[in-house]
């Protein structure tokens, strides 16, 4: 038995190398997405616009810088955040089917947004504010209901999430049923996720918060590894489980609440991307976290490019694309054995 050599499963070099590879793909996705769209933009023109060289029409410059770029970046930030949030919730709840919306961020946000639309507020400020407030209040309700004397128990929290979701969904349905004219269209687009209203202002808020959240969550990556192995085990090995859970729940809730208020409900990113990450890179969050976050950004940038171009000059809500790709993929995942979560004991 002495002849067996074992290799260190994960080194900082390996994490760095894989991250650089993902950054390269991310950059390629951004460039590709900037080139795609109803108006034709050649690589040469894109180059001139981005690096402020002469020889491009103002209209092209405007399309690239004012319309496509903010949207591509917001898509990236939203994908990054949702995927990161899904990964962390799956670990905290020890449930591979968890997604970033499981604690009611989605229905609470939607409730706020629908109220905003009914009141005729704008997509640039009023609706995001109400959506954000709705998202946070539903998470707050879930945590209050789900919280026990002995701390937060995952199954109680999940159940509380389901109940709050059902309640808010009922109210949303009421407003949809009674909505008139173009407000119905706005509501539906919001509910399926929509990045067409993107402006730089939103990215300027969301991007730094996403990066900060990542830094905080990454500092808990080894804690999350142990929590997925069982809370008792984690506690025994020196993890302050309640504190880790509380901080991670809050960070993810605020982050997803924020991006949802800008983008509407974009499903499946937070579910599918972390799973893909696990299948390829294993279960260690020190690698899985950057990989999932960047993978989510890439996935949503590509999906939004499709949403913009498939039925051009009209466009689809991006959530339609993510669900259309995500659902069959997820079925495949469920049918595939040993895909990164416990088979019989799960």
């Amino acid at each position: 038995m002495n002849g067996i050599s074992i290799k260190r499963p994960l080194s900082p070099m390996r994490v760095a190398g894989i991250c650089i590879a993902f950054l390269a793909v991310l950059l390629a996705a951004v460039v590709g997405s900037l080139l795609l769209g109803t108006a034709e933009v050649s690589p040469d023109q894109l180059w001139r616009v981005l690096f402020d060289k002469p020889g491009v029409k103002e209209a092209v410059s405007l399309i690239v810088l004012k319309i496509r770029l903010p949207r591509v970046i917001l898509a990236g930030v939203v994908g990054f955040s949702l995927s990161l949030g899904g990964l962390v919730f799956q670990a905290l709840l020890r449930n591979p089917l968890a997604d970033p919306f499981i604690l009611g961020v989605s229905s609470g946000g939607a409730f706020g947004a629908v109220i905003g639309i009914v009141l005729g507020l704008g997509f640039s400020f009023g609706i995001p504010c109400l959506a954000f407030a709705g998202a946070l209040s539903s998470v707050y309700l879930v945590l209050v209901i789900g919280r026990r004397k002995m701390g937060m128990e995952s199954s109680t929290i999940l159940l509380a999430g389901v109940i709050i979701n059902a309640f808010f969904t009922a109210i949303i349905m009421f407003f949809i049923a009674t909505a008139v004219d173009d407000r119905l269209h706005s509501m539906l687009f919001w509910l399926y996720g929509d990045l067409s209203q993107s402006r730089f202002g939103e990215t300027a808020i969301a991007a730094p918060i996403a990066l900060l959240s990542f830094a905080v969550l990454y500092s808990f990556s080894r804690h999350l590894n142990l929590i997925t192995a069982g809370e008792d085990t984690a506690r025994q090995l020196g993890v302050d489980v309640e504190r880790a859970k509380m901080i991670c729940f809050l960070v993810v809730s605020v982050l997803t609440g924020l991006v949802v208020s800008f983008s509407g409900l974009i499903g499946f990113v937070g579910l599918v991307v972390p799973h893909l990450g696990r299948m390829v890179f294993g279960s260690d969050h020190r690698l899985l976290m950057p990989v999932s976050a960047m993978g989510g950004a890439i996935f949503l940038i590509v999906a939004d490019s499709l949403a913009r171009t498939l039925i051009s000059p009209s466009e689809l809500p991006v959530g339609v694309i993510t669900a259309f790709v995500g659902a069959p993929f997820f079925i495949y995942l469920l049918k595939r054995k040993g895909s990164g979560w416990g088979g019989s004991s799960a």
Binding site: I6, T228, A229, R278, G282, D284, A346
Partner: peptide
């Protein structure tokens, strides 16, 4: 022990180094 996600035996042992 219930591992919800797939770790290698070595990774599990290394958790002891936490």
């Amino acid at each position: 022990s219930h591992f919800r996600f797939s770790f290698s035996a070595l990774e599990v042992v290394l958790m002891g180094r936490f």
